[in-house]
């Protein structure tokens, strides 16, 4: 059966959480990091936290945020995997389309991502029009789904996937995720090798 790979973005493909790193430039890092940590550990809902985090950054021009995000450091072994298997890989992230489109293009995933959506006017975000529920993506496919993620917002994604891989190469895997994952891997190279094995069989 054909396998489809769904990757979380923050701290799975990227080497750091995206929004906290953006918030550095407007000196809201502490506030943002705290909120992000609470979300990743499952202490507040993703939806609620995402709205307030977008709110914090809404005064920065969208193009500026997109530019910064496109320069964030990445797990290169996983990016290599994405590029090699473009036809079967997708990014699944709660982040906003208008913020990540540049990064998606850079990693060759411009046609392969699912995310939240916002409307923009005069280079500023006016409204979040959709917040992505990651698990809804699984239902879009009839194939065998392999999901890879690190945070508690990946819980349902990994739970609904046929095979769930928790990745702890960037940060500690959320404890809740360890309750539903089939595998946990803490080394980027090992993860890439393991995913290759899944394709071979």
């Amino acid at each position: 059966m054909k396998k489809i790979f769904l990757f979380d973005l923050d701290s799975t493909i990227t080497k750091e959480e995206i929004l906290p790193s953006i918030s550095k430039s407007i000196n809201k890092e502490d506030e943002m990091r705290k909120l992000t940590e609470m979300t990743m550990m499952g202490e507040i809902s993703f939806e609620e936290s995402f709205k307030s985090r977008v709110d914090m950054l809404k005064d920065i021009p969208v193009s500026e945020v997109a530019e910064k995000i496109s320069n964030i450091s990445l797990n290169q072994e996983l990016v290599k995997f994405l590029n090699k298997h473009k036809d079967i890989c997708y990014i699944v992230t709660g982040n906003l389309d208008v913020w990540i489109d540049k990064l998606m293009k850079k990693i060759g995933m411009e046609n392969n991502y699912f995310c939240s959506k916002a409307s923009v006017s005069n280079n500023k975000i006016t409204k979040i029009s959709k917040i992505l529920q990651k698990d809804e993506v699984v239902a879009k496919f009839k194939d065998y789904i392999v999901a890879i993620g690190d945070g508690s917002n990946d819980y349902k994604l990994l739970e609904k996937a046929n095979l769930g891989v928790a990745f702890g190469g960037v940060r500690n895997i959320a404890p809740s995720l360890l309750e539903v994952c089939d595998y946990a891997i803490y080394d980027e190279k090992r993860l890439a090798e393991f995913l290759e094995r899944l394709i071979e069989e």
């Binding site: 803490y186 080394d187 090992r190 393991f194």
Partner: peptide, 16 residues
């Protein structure tokens, strides 16, 4: 178990 194993090497695959 994961914590102890990771303290020795980071590239083990954990199966649940």
């Amino acid at each position: 178990v994961i914590e102890v194993v990771n303290s020795y090497r980071r590239d083990v695959t954990f199966v649940f």
